[in-house]
Design a protein around this nucleic acid. Sequence first.
DNA 1: CTCTTGACACCTAGGTGCGAACTT
DNA 2: AAGTTCGCACCTAGGTGTCAAGAG
Lengths: 228, 228
Amino acid sequence: MDGPVLSQSCALSLTCCADGGSLLSTKAPQVSGVRVQLEMHALWQQFDQLGTEMIVTKTGRRMFPTFQVQISGMDPTAEYVLLMDFIPVDDKRYRYAFHSSSWLVAGRADVAAPSRMHFHPDSPARGAQWMKQTVSFDTLKLTNNLLDDNGHMILNSMHRYQPRFHVVYVDPAPNSHLNAYRNFSSFSFHETRFMAVTAYQNHRITQLKIASNPFAKGFRTADPQDCW
Amino acid sequence: MDGPVLSQSCALSLTCCADGGSLLSTKAPQVSGVRVQLEMHALWQQFDQLGTEMIVTKTGRRMFPTFQVQISGMDPTAEYVLLMDFIPVDDKRYRYAFHSSSWLVAGRADVAAPSRMHFHPDSPARGAQWMKQTVSFDTLKLTNNLLDDNGHMILNSMHRYQPRFHVVYVDPAPNSHLNAYRNFSSFSFHETRFMAVTAYQNHRITQLKIASNPFAKGFRTADPQDCW
DNA sequence: CTCTTGACACCTAGGTGCGAACTT
DNA sequence: AAGTTCGCACCTAGGTGTCAAGAG
């Protein structure tokens, strides 16, 4: 497991567990009480049940659904940096079997793509600012270009990833780097896992994207099957 | 006169004069050396020669040309807030005489609109960040709605205004507010003055807007008179 | 009469999946 | 055969001046 696993209904209690128990005392008070709730979790779960796929392109592609969270429990006056990264779910490469409509292991993972952090563009900001409205990572883009210099997140196609969200308290104290491990808290939502692809494999994923992403409205039909 | 008057070719030397002479020593070193250069000054001057008009609407309208500046002389590591405001050029209300194609005084100014400051959305940021590229106020909007709650700049139609630009050093020292007057520097560019209007009065202004604003391309003709 | 408002056609800017062409 | 790339039509989102209608 890569960090705490959260699901829709119990997100708050489980994020609590991330720093809970005997470990609580090792975290700074500015982050120990932070709670994070995933927005659009119903949509995320709908995708997750089919096996979420995210397109990666050379120039960079947005995620859909967008990763958005509601935050509580920050120190309103303290300064925080918010960021995301993506970690491989396993060390496997996959391929899609159309005849059985399922993903099969196709060998060991390719060499790992350069690991990057995506800082939320409003960083740094005070807790009060982050908490007063949904925090959206809608400008984050995924690419399969190993040489990307636009600051996009580099992923290997046909590999599975788990998005991670990090809350970092900007400690004004001198030598605060010595306590760096105390000043951040990380959150993972199981239903946001996805397969990186250059073209959609599962036709039902395509249909759900078309049905739910406003920018794909041009591909919608009057067919009531839209909702599938 | 409302602050230093700057024109195209001597912007640097004249902004220098803003804090120049015996007053120089009264400003904090973080702002005393700041220099500001107006971008697109050739276009601004073209408008100014005709008598610039800016549309104000209930929902808010962007300025065109956009107010953009190139900054130098900041302390790269110091933190600054950048902001704009608009001050009445005089206490007069105007009307446009179509037969003579000129603006006439139409009495005393209306009651002053609520005076607001527009903070550049990237504020606060370090000097190095502000200086490394053009600072643009393209999201700033003008409105004639006295009850506006979208944070737009409220102006009276048929009144003349002078945009002002302020550089404020964020002084980390305790009780820095006691020295607040030392920590900012203001800049006015004469060629950015304009008349606020709800509809364009001078037809040549309309034509120059159509010719130079990309969003008005739909109104361009193949006529070579475009450049007038 | 002067001035303001709002619906409108026409743009810019950029996010979609499609499907043919390309690569391996 | 499997996977990637790219131009495209079709959208969202929102910035233009126009013009007819409205307000005072």
